[in-house]
């Protein structure tokens, strides 16, 4: 299948990219790794007039530390994330979840920031970054601004980025000492998560002191399972975790499609949350 025709620019700086986006307005699309955009173009589900390829802008790829934050540049690929020693040490949940994204060839091209900006609620990484309390740094004609993950995902395939803004960095608070697990349910290895659960658990004195749970594909945006997070505080055994996981689907709005009903997705959410928390807490 052949994509529709579009104009193409390959800026060499973020400023140049932002200018191109401002000129293109609503008809411009950012191309990073292209693993979401190119399929959309091929299937003719997107018709941008201008594609702004940010893949060659120097300085956008790589991971660095900034005090107690981890900073991941916009062109850092999934493959980079999975293998990066800083990510593995300070945000192991992200490395583990990213290893389940698509397949090796897609992970060589696809980027963390691209996947977040695409804002697909069935994508694995939005819920992971939400659970990690991450934030996005966007640059536009009015300068830079930082957007918390909870404010970044607005609706299905819609982030709070303005059309003339480029997502340049993803910032994650280091989650040293937190146990983690990403539990994903899908029918074949490359398919999207029917439901995914990202769990972070901090333990103290043999009990769960704090838990954070992100849900993939349980609404038009990634969600936190706040009722379960609260119920987990103080949980000391598998039974207490199972009781807390019973409220994991509260406040969700799961969709109906060919592979699952909303009720089935809610059931999966409860089961996968229990499994993810037990694994994260080392109680499994």
């Amino acid at each position: 299948m052949i994509p529709p025709a579009f104009d193409y620019v390959r800026p060499t700086s973020v400023d140049e990219a932002v200018r191109a986006l401002a000129e293109g307005g609503e008809e411009a699309k950012v191309l990073a790794g292209g693993q979401s955009l190119l399929p959309l173009l091929r299937l003719r589900l997107a018709f941008p007039e201008l594609v702004v390829d940010v893949g060659r802008i120097p300085g956008l790829r790589g991971v660095r530390e900034d005090g107690d934050m981890l900073v991941i540049g916009a062109m850092t690929t999934h493959h980079d994330v999975v293998h990066d020693p800083l990510v593995r040490r300070h945000a192991g949940l992200l490395a583990a979840a990213t290893a389940t994204v698509a397949d090796p060839a897609v992970r060589h091209r696809g980027t963390l920031a691209g996947s977040l900006a695409h804002a697909d609620p069935a994508g694995d990484l939005p819920a992971v970054v939400l659970a990690l309390d991450g934030e996005m740094v966007a640059q536009g004609p009015r300068g830079r601004r930082t957007i918390a993950a909870r404010d970044f995902f607005v609706d299905y395939l819609q982030s709070s980025l303005e059309p003339d803004e480029l997502l340049v960095e993803v910032r994650l608070p280091k989650a040293d000492g937190w146990g983690f697990h990403y539990e994903k349910f899908h029918r074949v290895s490359q398919s999207w998560a029917m439901v995914g659960v990202a769990a972070l658990v901090r333990r103290a004195d043999g009990h769960i002191a704090e838990a954070r749970i992100g849900l993939t594909n349980m609404s038009s945006v990634p969600l936190r399972a706040t009722a379960t997070e609260q119920a987990l505080t103080g949980a000391g055994d598998a039974e207490a975790v199972a009781r807390a996981a019973e409220s994991a689907a509260e406040g969700t709005h799961a969709s109906q499609d060919a592979s699952a009903t909303p009720e089935y997705r809610e059931h999966l959410t409860r089961v996968l949350t229990r499994r993810a928390v037990l694994a994260a807490a080392g109680m499994g």
Binding site: G34, A105, R109
Partner: peptide, 12 residues
């Protein structure tokens, strides 16, 4: 590195 050449533009 391996890539799926249906998901890469020639200009890339």
């Amino acid at each position: 590195v391996s890539v799926k050449s249906c998901s890469v533009l020639a200009v890339q």
